[in-house]
Design a protein around this nucleic acid. Structure first.
Lengths: 332, 332
DNA sequence: TTGTACGCGTTATCAA
DNA sequence: TTGATAACGCGTACAA
């Protein structure tokens, strides 16, 4: 094939094959009826000319882009990139193109991603971003873009959702610690870290109050190194506790700080990671965690979105329940 | 704003504003000249009607999609998702949409991603995937899509590249181990794990031969758990060695297997990770590694691609040199 | 079975 | 400063 200056169009194919462009179109899309020999002829010319239909023109003509948007805060979190990977796999299978938008936890970028999603005329969007809430998703709906929302509970005409079930399990773990455990529990609060953490924090407080128990809340940064430093300081005085942290990195910071302070995990210090990833079992001692398969979440969200696009989504809510993975950073 | 059945077009804006669609177009693009008051009027109508221009139609008309493709094997590797995140940030700044394609280490999927990239009429592509090599990138060029290739050294008319510098450093580390170290070195070979690992393996062998030294090569799977099991077995007999592993997970598997076998790191067992990530410093003992900032690689690749698209890329090759980060899994 | 003609929503050229 | 009008590359009734 020679070096093409610009793209071959359907017209050129039609001319070279001595047919009309309608026939070429039929061949491309396997639509209508076309005599076998002309079809073969057209296919041969297509190959010779190296013709590739323009997805843009097709999308414009059919009003379907066969592309979807994914909005996430960042690809730098393991659980999020796992989810993203799940989406890409289904996209690949089903022939969708995936447009990726990140917001870096900024409301401004989140809003601009909404604008871009609408402009790009995707067939639908998967949102896994706490910067975006119900009114934003309805805004998307007004521009006729269906939405699957992960980690939120919003169901409307063209909005499906995948909420996560952590509350029951958290309650069970906390109450179990009341019975069998020997440490006061501390919730590691990360500022501006989203709905999920807030929900769990509220549940943490609620369960403690219901049981008339004392608890702690400590603030920390969403960074391994700073959290590590903070806890090195903390462990100089306070040498016992059960800590509930958001992610593996944060949990690991606490575990490492404890170990480096001469404390024993889980005898002196227990640590629970809320969002477990494969690193939960790699870090030593391995981290007890609340596991959800985010790759599966990604796949599922994409399947739901496809159904939603085709008006075939019967169950608009599909809940993922977390599972307690007992490792060696907690006693029970 | 009311619920819109379908998208508002430029025609409807023009009619409602009592101007021609050409004027609306000028307002949207800030092109040509338009009297301030009509401009204001048009803008008001645009807001009232909630008009958002169709990116598809714009792309078709201008022959510019302001979108780029990114081809990677998977988003499940930390260093790759870091690179991906770097790309997304620049895309966001510069107003590009990012189309993500994954290949799962499959030649078939890689080829299909090429087809999709061409069909989608992206303005350019960033390739960080060992399934794709020079002929594939030239193929893309033939369809006038510029390419930035990461971890490869191919420079042509419309192909730029970001190669990685590991060889010098590896040589230095190995030779340093000859002088000061006390262990035979073992290269942990992962089947079908790509060019980078092969290059380093070759360098590893070469340096050993040049120095007339013995070495080992062992095979392992690209999985933490299987590698861990393999090394648990291995450490039953062979209780000393310096291991060079591809990624943090693999290095961690070896370290954990050693520790769990009653061996001491780095006294009995030394481990070096080739591609260090933030987990290198989280895992205990922390893992010595060859560091490259992949987020920066992603950003840089996108800047290069933009220049390449605009025919302004003067240096078609930009090399990232790895840096040796000494941690506690090696002695020196 | 094939071809004609129009529509998809823009940009861009050229007159007015 | 504005407004027709022709691309852009394709899908699709409808007619032949």
């Amino acid at each position: 094939m020679e070096n093409l200056k610009d793209h071959v169009t359907i017209y050129e194919v039609a001319k070279a094959a001595n047919v009309s462009l309608a026939t070429v179109s039929r061949v491309i899309n396997n639509s209508g009826t076309v005599r076998p020999d002309t079809k073969e002829k057209v296919l041969r010319v297509i190959k010779e000319l190296g013709y590739k239909p323009s997805g843009l023109a097709q999308a414009l003509a059919t009003n379907k882009s066969t592309s979807i948007g994914v909005i996430i805060p960042s690809a730098n979190y393991v659980y999020i990139s796992n989810m993203l990977n799940g989406v890409t796999e289904v996209c690949r299978d089903k022939g969708f193109t995936l447009n990726l938008y990140t917001t870096s936890h900024s409301r401004e970028d989140a809003l601009s991603s909404l604008e871009r999603v609408i402009k790009s005329r995707v067939d639908g969007v998967i949102v896994f971003d706490d910067e975006l809430d119900a009114p934003d998703l309805e805004f998307l709906n007004n521009y006729s873009v269906p939405v699957i929302n992960i980690n939120n509970k919003i169901c409307e005409s063209k909005i499906g959702c995948i909420p996560f079930g952590y509350e029951h399990l958290i309650k069970k773990i906390i109450e179990d610690n009341f019975v069998r455990g020997d440490k006061k529990m501390t919730f590691v609060h990360v500022h501006n870290s989203g709905r999920l953490l807030s929900r769990i924090e509220n549940q943490f407080i609620k369960v403690h109050k219901e049981n008339d128990r004392e608890y702690n809340i400590v603030n920390c940064d969403d960074s391994y190194h700073r959290t590590y430093q903070d806890f090195i300081e903390r462990f100089k005085k306070d040498r016992k506790g059960y800590f509930i942290a958001y992610r593996d990195s944060i949990a690991a910071a606490i575990i490492n700080a404890a170990t480096d302070s001469g404390l024993t995990v889980p005898d002196d210090i227990e640590v629970l990671s809320i969002i477990g990833t494969k690193y939960s079992s790699i870090i030593r001692p391995s981290i007890s965690n609340l596991y959800i398969d985010f790759q599966e979440v990604g796949k599922c969200s994409m399947y739901m979105l496809i159904d939603l696009i085709n008006d075939r989504l019967t169950e608009k809510e599909y809940k993922f329940e977390s599972v307690y993975i007992k490792k060696y950073s907690t006693k029970y």
